[in-house]
Simulated assay, not measured.
Amino acid sequence: MPVSLQKGQKVSLTKGNPGLSKVVVGLGWDVNQFDTGGDFDLDAAAFLLTDSGKISRQEDFVFYGNLKHPSGGVEHLGDNLTGVGDGDDEQIKVDLSIVPANISKIAFTVTIYDAEVRRQNFGQVNNAFIRIYREDTGEELLRYDLGEDFSIETAAVFGELYKNNGEWKFNAIGCGYQGGLAALCANYGVEVE
């Protein structure tokens, strides 16, 4: 039975699942039927962070432009340009056993591509969620539905996996940002052109 989380709730992933290493993080959303004159393209990303809360090198940012971390520990399964349909819109595979030792946290984010030009924001997105399930069996371990109404934000941190006393835990964040992907990159220490 998956754990359904509220904003700010934390739960251990590995304590009740000894030997768990390969999981898939599924992110999904629906778009309201407002006509903004353009399609919505939401993009999931993962930031592999050190204790400083920042990346240690540019490759620690996994997204549609860098699908696989050099360690093989985090892999984005590809960009979904429309978000149409049920279930996960984008997925990121994580192998906790090979995530580099200096990484203490993996933040999972979603941004709206070209949001300013298209005059789009998370207020026009609903049913957003993040879930984590076992890669081997497909069993859903946890789910967090972002109930918040972000009216002006163009980026959001859905949640994060983090290491604590040798265990991997999940924190339901649900925090919005203005400034899209560039704001998240600045926050996590990614250099953007």
Rank of each mutant, 00 (worst) to 15 (best):
D88H: 04
D86S: 12
N121L: 06
V74R: 08
G83C: 11
Y133L: 13
G8Y: 06
D30Y: 02
V190K: 10
L141H: 00
N17L: 14
S97Q: 09
A186K: 08
V31E: 05
E75G: 06
E139Q: 13
F129Y: 14
N66M: 08
A186F: 01
D88N: 06
G138M: 09
G179C: 05
Q9D: 12
L181E: 14
L49Q: 10
Y133T: 11
K93Y: 07
A172V: 04
L96T: 06
L67S: 13
T50S: 15
G189V: 03
F61Q: 14
A186Y: 01
D145V: 02
N187V: 08
E160P: 01
T14E: 00
F150A: 04
L5D: 02
D145G: 04
S151D: 11
V31M: 07
N165K: 02
V94A: 01
L181M: 07
T109G: 03
E191R: 13
K93L: 10
E153S: 03
I55D: 08
R143Y: 08
S4M: 09
S104I: 12
R143V: 06
T109K: 01
L142K: 10
A46E: 05
A172Q: 04
G123R: 02
F129D: 00
L67T: 14
T14Y: 00
I152T: 15
Q33S: 14
G147K: 12
G37D: 12
G85K: 04
S104A: 09
E191A: 15
N66W: 02
L5V: 05
T14V: 03
G87W: 02
K93I: 09
F170N: 00
N187C: 06
N126V: 02
Q33R: 09
V11F: 12
V125G: 02
A45P: 05
Y113E: 15
M1D: 04
I98C: 11
G8C: 06
V11Y: 09
F61C: 15
P2H: 11
V117G: 15
E193H: 05
G179I: 09
I173K: 03
T154I: 15
